[in-house]
Amino acid sequence: MGNIGRTLMLLMLVAMITRDALGKRTCFVSLRLKTTKGHFDRDIEDFTTRAFLGSCSKVERDCPGRLLEHVSNIFGPEVNPMKGDTSINMCKLFGMEILPEHNPDVDVKYKASSCGNEGYMGIGNLCCFKCAAGPYTFYHPINNCAPTERPAWCLPA
Rank of each mutant, 00 (worst) to 15 (best):
M1H: 09
M1D: 07
N3F: 03
N3P: 00
G5R: 07
T7C: 10
L8M: 12
M9Q: 14
L11M: 14
L11H: 01
L13E: 06
I17N: 08
T18Q: 07
G23W: 08
K24V: 12
K24R: 15
R25N: 09
F28M: 04
V29H: 04
S30M: 05
R32K: 12
K34H: 07
T35C: 06
T35N: 03
T35D: 09
T36P: 01
T36V: 10
G38Y: 08
H39R: 11
H39Y: 07
F40N: 11
D41K: 11
D41W: 06
D46R: 07
D46T: 04
D46I: 00
T48E: 13
T49E: 09
T49I: 12
R50I: 08
A51V: 07
F52L: 15
F52N: 05
L53M: 12
G54R: 08
G54A: 04
G54I: 03
C56R: 05
C56V: 06
S57G: 02
K58F: 03
V59F: 03
C63K: 14
G65T: 06
L67Q: 03
I74Q: 01
I74E: 00
F75N: 04
F75I: 02
G76V: 11
G76Y: 03
G76H: 13
M82A: 10
G84V: 08
S87M: 06
I88A: 10
I88W: 07
K92E: 13
F94Q: 12
G95C: 13
M96I: 15
E97I: 09
L99C: 06
L99E: 05
L99R: 12
P100T: 10
H102P: 03
V106Q: 02
D107M: 02
V108A: 05
K109H: 15
Y110E: 00
K111R: 14
S113P: 09
S113M: 09
C115T: 04
E118H: 06
G119M: 05
N125H: 09
C128V: 10
F129V: 01
K130I: 01
K130E: 13
K130H: 01
C131S: 10
A132M: 13
G134E: 07
P135L: 12
Y136N: 15
H140K: 07
H140G: 00
N144M: 13
N144E: 15
C145R: 13
A146K: 15
T148N: 08
E149S: 14
P151M: 04
A152S: 11
A152D: 15
C154M: 04
L155N: 11
A157E: 14
A157G: 15
